[in-house]
Amino acid sequence: EPIEAIAKFDYVGRSARELSFKKGASLLLYHRASEDWWEGRHNGIDGLVPHQYIVVQD
């Protein structure tokens, strides 16, 4: 079951695997890939989301 998150800041992906998004964007998170990253989805694209840039919705 994906988790919803909201972007705290704009983020520009630094590689093809990283998602880019704007502050306030809604993201879906699948699972924690590491301490710093989530596997997630934004605008229909799957990729990595940096933990420091999002607020996970409970």
Rank of each mutant, 00 (worst) to 15 (best):
K23Q: 15
P2I: 12
I45S: 13
D46L: 10
G47D: 00
L27H: 01
F9A: 09
V49G: 00
D36W: 08
E18V: 07
G47K: 01
E35N: 12
I45Q: 15
K8D: 07
S34L: 05
H31W: 08
V56F: 15
A16Q: 12
S20K: 04
R32T: 03
H42F: 14
V12D: 15
S26Y: 09
F21E: 02
H51L: 03
Q52F: 11
R17G: 11
R41I: 08
I54K: 01
Y53H: 06
R17N: 07
V49T: 03
W37H: 12
Q52P: 10
E4T: 07
A33M: 10
N43V: 05
A5K: 02
I45E: 11
A33C: 11
L48Y: 10
V55F: 06
F9H: 06
G47M: 01
H31Y: 12
V12L: 12
R17H: 10
I6A: 07
G47W: 00
G47S: 00
R32L: 06
I54W: 11
G44S: 12
W38G: 00
L48Q: 07
D10V: 02
D46V: 09
K8G: 08
A5I: 04
L19E: 01
K8A: 10
A25I: 03
S26H: 13
I45C: 04
D58N: 13
G13P: 09
D36V: 10
H31M: 10
Y30T: 14
R14I: 11
L29T: 01
I54A: 08
F21P: 01
A5F: 03
W38A: 00
Y30Q: 09
N43S: 09
F21N: 00
E1F: 15
E4Y: 10
W37E: 03
D58C: 04
S34A: 07
A25Y: 11
L29S: 00
Y53N: 15
N43A: 09
F9Y: 05
P2T: 15
S34E: 06
A33N: 09
K22W: 07
E35T: 05
V49L: 10
W37Y: 13
I6W: 07
L28S: 13
L48A: 12
S34W: 03
I6K: 10
Q52T: 09
F9S: 15
G24P: 02
V49H: 01
I3C: 02
L19D: 00
A33H: 08
G44I: 03
R17S: 11
V12Q: 14
R32E: 05
G24N: 15
L28A: 14
S34K: 10
K23G: 08
I6P: 01
L29M: 05
V12M: 07
Y30P: 01
A25D: 12
H42Q: 12
D10Q: 07
G24T: 04
D46M: 15
E18K: 05
E39F: 05
I54R: 00
H51P: 03
S15R: 15
P50S: 09
S26V: 12
E1I: 15
L28W: 08
A33L: 14
D10H: 07
H42W: 09
I45L: 14
S15I: 06
A5H: 02
R17T: 14
I6Y: 11
I54D: 01
Q52H: 14
G47C: 02
A16T: 09
D10M: 06
D36H: 11
P2V: 15
P2H: 15
P50C: 11
S34H: 05
E18G: 03
Y30L: 12
F21Y: 02
R17I: 07
E18D: 12
S20I: 02
R14V: 10
L27A: 00
H31A: 14
G47A: 03
S15V: 08
L27M: 12
V49E: 00
W38Q: 00
Y53M: 13
P2A: 15
A16C: 06
E39Y: 07
Q52S: 10
H51Y: 05
Y11E: 00
E39M: 11
E4Q: 12
E1D: 11
E35F: 13
P2N: 15
A33I: 04
I54V: 14
K22M: 09
W37L: 09
S20N: 04
L29R: 00
V56I: 10
H51D: 08
S20H: 09
E18S: 08
I54N: 01
K23Y: 05
R41V: 15
P50H: 11
H31R: 13
H31C: 08
N43I: 03
L28T: 13
L48P: 02
S34P: 02
H31N: 04
N43H: 04
P2D: 15
L27S: 01
E35L: 08
S26L: 13
K23N: 05
W37M: 13
K22Q: 05
S20W: 05
W37P: 01
S34G: 12
Q52C: 13
V55L: 10
V12N: 12
D10F: 04
R17D: 04
W38P: 00
N43R: 10
S26Q: 11
I54F: 04
L28F: 13
L28Q: 15
K23S: 13
A5R: 02
Y53P: 04
D36S: 13
F9L: 09
A16P: 06
G24S: 08
G47Y: 02
E35I: 07
D36M: 15
L48D: 03
G13H: 04
G24H: 15
E39C: 05
E39R: 08
G13R: 09
A5Y: 04
R17Q: 10
F9W: 08
K22C: 08
H31D: 14
L27G: 00
H42I: 13
A33W: 06
L19K: 00
W38R: 01
I54C: 08
L28D: 14
E18N: 02
H31K: 14
P50T: 02
K22V: 11
N43C: 04
V49F: 03
R32N: 03
R41K: 10
H31I: 03
R32H: 08
A16S: 08
V12W: 05
A33E: 12
G44Q: 13
R14Q: 07
L28H: 12
A16D: 06
E39D: 13
W38E: 00
P50I: 04
V49R: 00
R32M: 06
D36T: 11
A25E: 15
L27W: 00
E18W: 02
H51C: 03
P50W: 03
S26G: 12
R14W: 04
S15M: 14
K23M: 10
K23H: 05
V12I: 06
S20C: 06
S15D: 14
D10N: 13
P2F: 15
K23D: 05
V12T: 11
I6N: 05
L19Y: 00
Y30S: 12
E1Y: 05
G40S: 05
L28R: 11
E18A: 03
K8Y: 07
Y11K: 02
A7S: 07
W38C: 01
F9V: 07
R14F: 05
Q52Y: 12
A25N: 08
K8P: 01
E4R: 06
Y30R: 12
K22F: 14
D46Y: 08
F21G: 00
A7W: 00
R14S: 04
E4L: 05
Q52N: 09
G13Y: 01
G47E: 00
I6G: 04
E1G: 04
H51A: 15
I3G: 05
A5Q: 01
D36P: 06
S26E: 12
S34T: 09
V56L: 07
E39P: 01
V12E: 15
I3Q: 09
F21L: 04
K8W: 05
G40F: 00
I6E: 10
P50K: 11
F21W: 01
S26F: 10
D46C: 05
A5E: 01
W37A: 08
E4M: 13
Y53Q: 14
I45K: 15
